[in-house]
Every structure is written in structure tokens, then in C-alpha cells.
Design a binder for these strands. Structure first.
Lengths: 344, 344
DNA sequence: TTGTAAGCGTTATCAC
DNA sequence: GTGATAACGCTTACAA
């Protein structure tokens, strides 16, 4: 890692390192000619200062950490894209870690960020940290970080910091109501992981819509478990074969939507003739096939951008009250929510 | 960024910093009791050394740079996933930048990596750098990096370093040949960006298959331009409306495949009855819908893993000859390559 | 087995 | 305007 350093430049330019430093940072008085001379030497050697030494000396790094559950999921890679865009533009360095939705790996990610002395982090937590011990563990690590944190997508109770969230409740409510308006009376929910706040909020939105419209809330219509595909598949397969099955579903995320669709296909049912639905988030490949599947759409890249902006703003105004940005998902009705006559 | 440092620990434990350092790194002699004492103090303060100071002192960082064209593309986020997995496991830190396939941003990414003094990089170049000046620019920055580089997915001529590539030529050849075997005689290619080596290799594989089988190579059947969706759409729309159109296509990547599929849909053609194809890479959403679309499949995550492994190996054995890993894509025939009787 | 001290490449505080 | 010099937090000879 040996390369020309500020000392070398200073020597060759016949000045002190302090002067070179002034030239690099463009602050402090330094004469026209000295500046020119120093710059020439720097160019000649492709001199580039060391962020390492700089951060150490300034006691402040320009690295920002991003912790996400997984990179291989269009939702999270969308967030990453947004974050990356604004960080690049503003001259910050992006350090990334994934947690795989695992608490322990989440802790390790947090620690890795501290090890790197990041200036702040953007954090999609692996879980809710509702258990007191877990919360203590997590927030201790967050505090140790010593820098600001922006929570992205998955809220954590009792954590007072900037966050960028989605209005899961009203999204789910709107989706469910759309199906009710379409004439459905027996509506199920594939709620996914209600350990996660976002899962619960979505389930609650669904429930509220059902109750508000004076329909019956069937416990057996509320499928919960993980946000994963196989889980949804198994549960939907079972429920759809019961005589008294729902005619429509609110689906909590795109992975469970895949499971749902696979079940529907295997049961040789038609959408929306045999079973209708509205899902949370666009399906991967939705844009490809332009399928008439209704969903709650979020501008994912924008969420990432907002989070990054919030963090940077926090650097500038450390004492601003915590900001909470809640984005309402847009309901896109494309037909799969309909109730056709075929259904009794 | 103020936090407890090695000096604080040393003082409180009543030892010298060197001893603390030995404990941290577990090397050098230090007595059982001293170790215990120091460890206790470290735990009490949640002490975590600074990677910044450590790297500076060791003249070697544990950060690894990854430069990819975009994060919001399943192919690249797959690579990222693979890279991230092995880096996490081996204790390296991942710094990421995107180039947006833009040469200038690519340069800046390279410079940012140097600024951070990364130990090495994994690099999916924004372009080919075939022009001498461009190549000089790029490779100068690569040299300035001062660390090893693993080229991923997009080869660069005359650059002698480790790389992980796909056998684009034989993939395209196999895909085209499959369609010939299926009975097609008029086969087009949606070759995408032949500025990129990978684009040319794919086009050449197609050509070879056509010629080898003594078929005619029609210039107008070879669509080139970008790997983008709109471009493919426009070109396919035009070609498919000509009287003398191809009955099948080799498609150079998944984005152009989307364009192709949209055109096919808009023209109300059926696959493979009216037009057949084999594409490069899985379509986003392929797993979702289990469509009978044939393609050349690559284990994308594995490519990322291999690249990371190669880089780490290079740290350990700096003088090993450059390794060139070429993965042959697997041809998955699912029906879209067929030739049905309907075609004249 | 442990401590002292000299770096590592910057920035920042003073004098000059 | 400019140049020493002391940090920054750590590692690593070299002594003791």
C-alpha cells in the first residue's frame, strides 16, 4: 500500500507539508504561485491523499454504512441504488453489509460499521428488537457507533431517530377495501411475518378494512408465518382447498405473492375469476410481463435516496429533532382485484 | 468520532499500549493474567479498535472495492451477493460504487477506491477500454490502486489479471445450435451492445453456429445496439413485420429479452408457434412464473463468490500467475426454442 | 513477558 | 503566506 505521500510532495515542491495540505483542501492562505507549483507536483505523481490518514487526523470519516437483509432482492437492491446515488453525488463512501434477516449477523454488521468508524449508518434492521434484551443489545451497539442512524423501512419501537418508512397500515387498508368495493366478502390475508412490525401493520390494515365494512373477520383466513415463498405456498394450498375458502386475498409482500401464484397455478385456478388478490409491492418481472396484477407500489429507489439525504442532513444539523418520513404506497389496480360473476 | 482508544485501555489496565495491542491481535507473548485483565477492561468499555488507525499503521487495509455498472439489475445484485458473502465470512469490508456503464463514473469509482486505500478490487468495467487512450486512462488508475484487481464478467483486452468470465461464445453457439436442431433455418440475433466484448462474443457464437450448419448469415437478421429494452423492442418490432423475417432469435441478454417479449406481445405473436427464441440469462421473474422460456443460465451468485475468492487468494500468493476462470453457461431448454409446424 | 518509542499519512495549532 | 510540530489510534521493532 506504499504510494507517494504528502511529505514526498512537499519535499519535491520545496514547501512544508502544511502548505500541501492547504492546497489539497483549498483552505488557508497560500500564494498563487505556490499553489500552482504544488498542484503540478501532485499531478505529476497522480498524488491522492489517504482517506485513512485524513479520517484519523480529522477524527471524522466520510464512510457511511448500509445494512440490509439481503442484496439479492429487488426491494433491497432498489434501496441500495437510491442510497448509492446520493452518496456518490455527495462524495461519501458506501460500506455495505447484509444480515440475512439474522439477529446475530445484524449485530456483527453493526460492529463492523463501528470498527470502520463510519460517520453514520442507514439501517434496515434484521428484526424488530422488541424483546427487551435484544433491544438492549442492538441499541447498545447503535450507541457505540457514535454516529447518527437512519432507520429504513422497518421501524423499531422506542428508537428515537430519523427514519424513512412506508405506511403499511393504510396501504393494506386501501388494498383490502379495493377488493371489498369490487364485491368480495370473503377476503383472506397472507400476512407473512407478524414478528416484524411491518407485517403486523399490514395485517392490521387488512383487519380494519374488514371490520370497518362490517364483514366478518375469520381467524382461519389470516395466514401468518414468514414472508417467504414456500410458507405462503403451503398455507394457500391448504386454505384454497377448503369448501369455505376466501374469494380474494390481501398479500403482504412479493415473496409470498410468488408462493400464492404458484399455489393458484397448481390448483388450476384463474385470476381473478376463481380467486382475486392485491399484493404489497411489485412482483419481480412485473414490468416485463405487464401482468394485470394489482398491487401497492412504492418508489423504492426514492426511499433509499430519502434515507441518505436524511443522514447527510443530520450531519449538518445534529440537533434537529428526529424526522420521520412515512411514504404512502400507491394502489395500482390492474384487474386482479376484481370479482367476476363466476364466483358464487 | 471520539471513543475509547488503546491508550485508555492500557492506562486503566495498568499496562503499556503495546501489551494491549498484543492482546487484541493475539500475537506476541503476554501472560495469562495480563491478558485476562486487559480483556476485562476492553469488555467493560466495549472497546473496539479503529480500522482506520490499524490500516494506517499496518500499511494495509482490509477494505475491498466492488465496482459494478448498476445495483438495480438482478445480474449485478447477484454478483454483489456472492462477493458480499465471502467477504463477510473472511472478515473483509466491502466498499461499493456503481458506474452506470459510464466511463467517467468508472474512472471516478476507481479513484474513490484508491482514495480509500482498498486492499484490492473486484471490477465489472463500464466498457471495454479498447481505444488506446481510454485503456491508458483506465489502466493507469488501476495501477495507481496499488492492489490486485479481479475482472468480473466483462473482459478487457491486454489486461493481465485474474478474472471470472462467462464463455459467451460457446453459450451463444449452443443456444443457436439448439434452435437449428429444432428445425429453424432463419434465425436472428438480438446481439445488444457489440461495443462490449461480451456482446461481440455472443454475436460471434451465433454466427459460428449459423455458418457451421451451412445456413445463410443475413446481415439484417443481426440486430445490434444497446443491451437495453427499448432498443431491442424497436428493432424487433421492425424486423418481425418484414415478410422475410426470422422464425427464431438468439437474444443477447435479459433486458433485450424483455424488449423482444414486449414486441412479440404487441404483434400478437405466440411463442414458439410464431416465433421461437433462446435468451442469455434468466429473466427476472422467471422463477415466479416458471415460463417455458429457454435460456442460458449462469450461477450468478457463484460468479461473485469466485471473484472474491480469487482476490483473497491473490493477497496470499501475490506472485501466482493470473488466473482466468471461464464458466460455461448451462443451456436450459424449456420449449421456447421449438419449431412448430405452423411456421412455413 | 512487558514497556518505550518510532512510525503510518494526514490535519491543525501555532509561531514566524 | 508559510513551516514546524503535535496530535489522531494503532503496530512493531527494540530494549529491558
Amino acid at each position: 500500500m506504499k504510494s507517494v505521500n504528502i511529505q514526498d510532495i512537499a519535499r519535491e515542491a520545496g514547501v512544508g507539508k502544511a502548505t500541501v495540505s492547504r492546497v489539497i483542501n483549498g483552505k488557508g492562505y497560500v500564494s498563487r504561485e505556490t499553489t500552482a507549483k504544488v498542484k503540478a507536483v501532485m499531478e505529476r505523481h497522480h498524488y491522492q491523499p489517504s482517506a485513512l490518514a485524513r479520517s484519523l487526523s480529522r477524527r471524522e470519516s466520510d464512510a457511511i454504512g448500509l445494512i440490509i437483509p439481503e442484496a439479492n432482492n429487488p426491494f433491497f437492491s432498489g434501496l441500495l441504488t437510491g442510497v448509492s446515488q446520493v452518496l456518490d453525488k455527495c462524495g461519501y463512501t458506501l460500506i455495505i453489509r447484509t444480515s440475512g434477516n439474522d439477529k446475530q449477523r445484524d449485530y456483527r454488521a453493526l460492529e463492523a460499521m463501528r470498527y470502520q468508524r463510519v460517520r453514520g449508518i442507514i439501517y434496515v434492521p434484521a428484526c424488530n428488537y422488541e424483546d427487551d434484551d435484544d433491544f438492549a443489545e442492538m441499541s447498545s451497539r447503535l450507541v457505540d457507533l457514535g454516529g447518527p442512524c437512519v432507520i429504513l423501512d422497518r421501524p423499531i419501537n422506542q428508537l428515537d431517530c430519523d427514519c424513512v418508512l412506508s405506511d403499511n397500515f393504510s396501504g393494506a387498508y386501501a388494498a383490502t377495501e379495493a377488493m371489498i368495493q369490487a364485491g368480495h366478502r370473503a377476503i383472506g390475508a397472507i400476512a407473512g411475518n407478524i414478528q416484524l412490525m411491518i407485517g403486523r401493520e399490514r395485517l392490521e390494515g387488512y383487519r380494519k378494512a374488514i371490520l370497518q365494512n362490517r364483514l366478518t373477520l375469520h381467524t382461519e383466513y389470516q395466514l401468518t408465518g414468514t414472508f417467504g415463498q414456500k410458507d405462503a405456498y403451503a398455507q394457500v394450498m391448504e386454505l384454497l382447498q377448503k369448501p369455505d375458502r376466501p374469494t380474494a386475498f390481501f398479500i403482504g409482500n412479493n415473496q409470498s405473492e410468488i408462493g400464492f401464484l404458484n399455489a393458484v397455478r397448481d390448483l388450476k385456478l384463474k385470476i381473478p375469476a376463481d380467486v382475486a388478490f392485491v399484493g404489497f409491492d411489485e412482483l419481480p418481472g412485473q414490468m416485463v410481463f405487464e401482468l394485470p396484477y394489482s398491487c401497492l407500489d412504492r418508489d423504492v429507489v426514492m426511499l433509499g435516496e430519502k434515507a441518505a439525504q436524511l443522514l447527510i442532513r443530520r450531519f449538518e444539523e445534529p440537533n434537529r429533532p428526529a424526522e420521520r418520513l412515512v411514504v404512502v404506497p400507491r394502489l395500482c389496480l390492474r384487474g386482479s382485484e376484481k370479482r367476476l360473476n363466476k364466483l358464487k
